[in-house]
Computed example of a mutant assay.
Amino acid sequence: MTASRPHTLFSFGTLKDERVQTALFGRPVPTAPAALAGHTTRPLPITDPAVIAASGLDVHLTLEREIGATVEGVVLCLTDQDLAAADAYEVDDYARRRVLLTSGESTWAYLDAKPLRAAQRIVIVGDSIAYGRCDPSGGWAGRLAAAHIALDESGHRVFNLAVPGSTLADVSEQTPALLAARRPDTLLVAAGVNDSAVPVVVPGDHRDGLARIAEHLGALAATALGHNARLVVAGPVWLDEERTADYEGLRFTRERAQALRASARAWCEENHVDFLDLWEPLRGSGELFTDGLHPTPEGHRVLHRHLAALGR
């Protein structure tokens, strides 16, 4: 029989209440004062009758980012079963994610389920599609930046640091040195198709990028958490295999791109990281690609609308 693991969970709202704890866990649980920097709260209307009955409130609070702000609360010490009960208690508007307390300790917290809605300062890293190649308006990332900054020009920032040709190996190696000056609260990683590419002439020391997806995403998760930033992974875009041929010495196939998509999604689900799936919006729409790999300006508009709906 597997022993239950200990978990800590930051709470600033109803989970601090011993009556709610007793209703969920069968007892009050050990707690300690804690604080979460770089966040503030806003009200969230609740419609789930069971949650309202347990808390006695039809409006809860949710976290959103604000530099210089601090949210005071407590850390709850929970078992596996307790944590599962807390997950079941929280409505779909919340998602359990890793955060850093002001003490420097890592803990779970329930954040806005729409990761970009709660963001202020977003750093984007990835490849040529995230960079916006073939679109003078900067691609989906440029459109996301324009819309995000328009919501709050004084506080919102988007830094697109994507580099054409990058793989997740490149991104995980280069990103740590880039973040401190940008003070991000959200790190948006575009897991592009370069990790699925196979060289036409395979060198003897070639290593399959698909085999190291978990390793690179894990490194990026640690980098993001070190800055108390929320990691968000955008999956690869559908590709028109019939038109890609052998592109700059590389071969791209939908089968391997699908494998990358599945690996990234599975890793995100296992590690409670946000995954934004960009595959479906362009699936079967070869006319929205310039060369089978890079979307046209209209293709980027379609991607941005889809991404905005998922993230906001």
Rank of each mutant, 00 (worst) to 15 (best):
H304L: 09
S55C: 06
L307R: 01
I213V: 14
R243W: 14
D93Y: 06
G132N: 08
Q174E: 15
A118L: 10
L220M: 12
T8Q: 08
I67P: 12
A118Q: 04
Y110L: 03
P164N: 01
Y94K: 06
A197N: 09
L239S: 02
Y131V: 02
A309G: 10
T41M: 12
A84Y: 11
Y94D: 07
R5N: 13
V123W: 14
A34Y: 06
D185Q: 03
C134T: 11
T244W: 02
E173Q: 15
E64H: 12
R265L: 13
N271S: 09
D185H: 04
A53G: 08
S55G: 10
A266I: 06
T22S: 13
T186Q: 04
G68H: 12
L307G: 01
A88I: 04
R312Y: 13
R183V: 10
L293E: 05
D58P: 01
E173A: 12
G155H: 15
D80P: 10
L188R: 00
G126Y: 04
H156K: 09
D291C: 08
P45G: 12
P297T: 05
A109E: 01
I213E: 04
R265I: 08
P199M: 14
A197L: 07
A245T: 13
S166W: 00
P295Q: 02
R143W: 10
L161A: 01
G286R: 05
A308G: 11
V59R: 14
S11I: 08
I124N: 03
E64S: 14
A169T: 10
F159Q: 09
V232D: 05
G286M: 05
R133Y: 14
S172A: 14
R19W: 01
A214H: 11
G56S: 07
P203L: 04
R183N: 14
R283A: 02
V123P: 05
R97D: 06
P45M: 12
A221F: 05
A181F: 11
A309V: 11
G26H: 11
V200N: 10
S106K: 07
V123M: 00
N160S: 02
D112W: 09
